[in-house]
Computed example of a mutant assay.
Amino acid sequence: MTAELVILLDESGNAIGSAPKAATHHARTPLHLAFSCYVLDRAGRVLITQRAHDKPTFPSVWTNSFCGHPSPGEDICDAVKRRAEQELRLTLEGLVLTLPTFRYAATGANGVRENELCPVFTATAASEVTPDRSEVAAVEWVPWRSFRDEVLAGERAVSVWCASQVARMAGREVDDGGFAPAALDELPPAARPARHP
């Protein structure tokens, strides 16, 4: 089986190479391209997930619906849809870019550091959720507004990146319960797709 590769980036978000995912994540993880997605249902609930207990990075932590890494040459929107299927057996519709240039770095309790340019997407669930237990320990549907308020007040423990993302997403909410879209050309250069979703 071919090792999963991640796209390495310079400080301007340009691709400078690739490396195996497993070998990339350590105490001095280089900057690389990732993505996060928040999946909502038609009732305005957001899907949150608990990372599997034996994951090498941030095990057991509650966080957004799912995260992942586009492969070299893969359209980032296709990568989001692929990862939803892999991790949650979930089909998405209405994929929207929400935070095109989100970046964070954080070190987990085991000393493994994340260092990512991590565009954030939202989407609507178009199927039932059936999590892959090697990736996801538990799932929960929570009203977005309750989740947002609890995270912002520090009343709900979530991953470092999720807490920061929720704070920024709160400023992009629109009246219909969604989020103001960003343009795909606002993505870091390495993530700009050749076509739109």
Rank of each mutant, 00 (worst) to 15 (best):
Met1Glu: 09
Met1Cys: 09
Thr2Pro: 15
Ser12Asn: 12
Gly13Tyr: 02
Asn14Ala: 02
Gly17Leu: 10
Ser18Trp: 06
Ala19Ile: 03
Ala23Leu: 10
Thr24Cys: 08
His26Val: 07
Thr29Ser: 07
Phe35Ala: 06
Tyr38His: 08
Tyr38Trp: 11
Leu40Ala: 15
Leu40Tyr: 10
Val46Ile: 08
Gln50Val: 05
Lys55Asp: 15
Trp62Lys: 00
Ser65Pro: 12
Gly68Asp: 04
His69Pro: 02
His69Leu: 00
Ala79Gly: 14
Glu87Val: 02
Glu87Ser: 07
Leu90Arg: 01
Leu92Val: 00
Glu93Ser: 12
Glu93Trp: 10
Leu97Cys: 08
Leu97Ile: 01
Leu99Ser: 03
Pro100Cys: 08
Tyr104Cys: 09
Ala105Pro: 14
Ala109Arg: 11
Gly111Val: 04
Cys118Ala: 02
Pro119Leu: 02
Val120Phe: 06
Thr122Leu: 01
Ala123Glu: 06
Thr124Lys: 07
Val142Thr: 04
Arg148Ala: 07
Asp149Gly: 06
Glu150Met: 14
Leu152Pro: 08
Gly154Asn: 05
Ala157Thr: 00
Ser159Lys: 01
Cys162Val: 03
Val166Tyr: 06
Ala167Leu: 04
Arg172Trp: 02
Ala180Met: 11
Leu184Arg: 02
Asp185Trp: 11
Leu187Thr: 02
Leu187Gln: 07
Pro189Phe: 06
Pro189Ala: 05
Pro197Arg: 00
